[in-house]
Amino acid sequence: MSTTAKNILAVMRTGPYGNQTAKEALDAVLTAAAFELPLSLLFMDDGVFQLLPQQDTQGIGAKDLSATLPVLPMYDVERFYVEQSSLESRGINSAELILPVEVLDSEQVKVLFAESASILSF
């Protein structure tokens, strides 16, 4: 785990389509990244569901967020973290996710929070 000074941490804790939060979070992250702010993303709780493959949103008329998330490296957002216990309690293997993630245990998440200059909570 490496964090730079002034790093902004966006904490994604909601599933992708139950409400608008995940979409608004992604819009905020893209906006900040367009201004070259240094960002990293932490997915925990139901936020890890945003990273499942095979999302097909045609039937619910929502935008497929899993198509847009992989654009983030082009915006120079390249540090993606997921909390281990959130994955375990949902039976998700980090290798199957749509972004290359670093799995952190709760102690490492504490360090991540401590080292981030500011936190955006979604």
Partner: peptide
């Protein structure tokens, strides 16, 4: 088509 968004200027230049 790939990402579902229009890119910001900085990203457009890069692309």
């Amino acid at each position: 088509r790939e990402f579902g968004i229009s890119p910001a200027m900085r990203i457009l230049v890069k692309q």
